[in-house]
Amino acid sequence: MVSRTFRTRAMAATVAVLALGLAACGSSGSGDSSTDAATGGGDSGDLINVGFSQVGAESGWRAANTKSIQDTLTKDNGFDLKFSDAQQKQENQIQAIRSYIAQGVDYIAFSPVVESGWDAVLEEAKQANIPVILTDRAVDSEDKSLYVTFIGSDFVEEGKRIGEWVNDNVATEPINVVELQGTTGSAPAIDRKQGFEDATKGNPNVKIIASQTGNFTRAEGKTVMEGFLQANPDIDLVYAHNDDMALGAIEAIEAAGKKPGTDIKIVSIDGVKDGMQALADGKINYIVECNPLLGPDLADIIKTLHSGGTVEPRIVTHDDAFDQAAAKEALPTRQY
């Protein structure tokens, strides 16, 4: 009897949890926008209504990206920005985009958390005649008419540049490489892996001995690197898909009694402040920048579209690359 009562209760509770969970998801999309309820709808004077759905705040890069967008798309610049944070969940992003469609914003911009599964919601936006701009990450839809343009770095190119630097500077003798991948299924993880492999494929000295996801976070970068260090006694180079995982790897390498940057070389992508600092300190060897300051470019695109102009379907941002000497020079004037 007791167990049956308990089971019934547990079931009721589960249902309640699910209901609450859904409610919570719903509010995360519309909650942010309700702050702008006064100006809601597509007819708020001269301001251009833009709904932006951010991936999350998983790394320093993302924080800089968020700040750039929020600082550029201001009321003073003629925008009414509705911003929401999807906390790295696709369902939250879809929810947010639907709520933007329901509110009838003029433009929707978002950084898709993963590549696939966007066709349905983008179709809804198309039906509602709301142009969609992809920032930073791409989607794998066959139908290119679902979005106006994709602005962001060329991730394959970033991986290639890392690979080329490794070929020229480290892989002059045989080396064992471990790879810290980004979030499984995300465009930067797939493309950065691809680019690196393309560049090092012709070099028999480069041997990728292990590759695992660190989910773009420091904590997981550290955990995975600890495992790598236990499993493989002779690692020569760590290729991290972003700086935060590289920073986690540094902690793990130091804990293992080795010197990051010397005993084990580290290359990564992003160029956030903490990463550049580690590069200047000699703990990272090479960083290819992935420019997060997309705000101004996004503002230009929207203004062009709003005045009836057209934009290229793919806009590649300019990225720099830094070695240790260049990092020391650049660090004092970095914006992020």
């Binding site: 998983e58 906390q87 976070t217 420091r218 904590a219 997981e220 920073l247 902690e251």
Partner: peptide
């Protein structure tokens, strides 16, 4: 312990 591990407070992932 978790935040000391990476010396950072990662509110989304901790």
């Amino acid at each position: 312990i978790k935040s000391s591990d990476i010396m950072a407070a990662d509110s989304n992932n901790a």
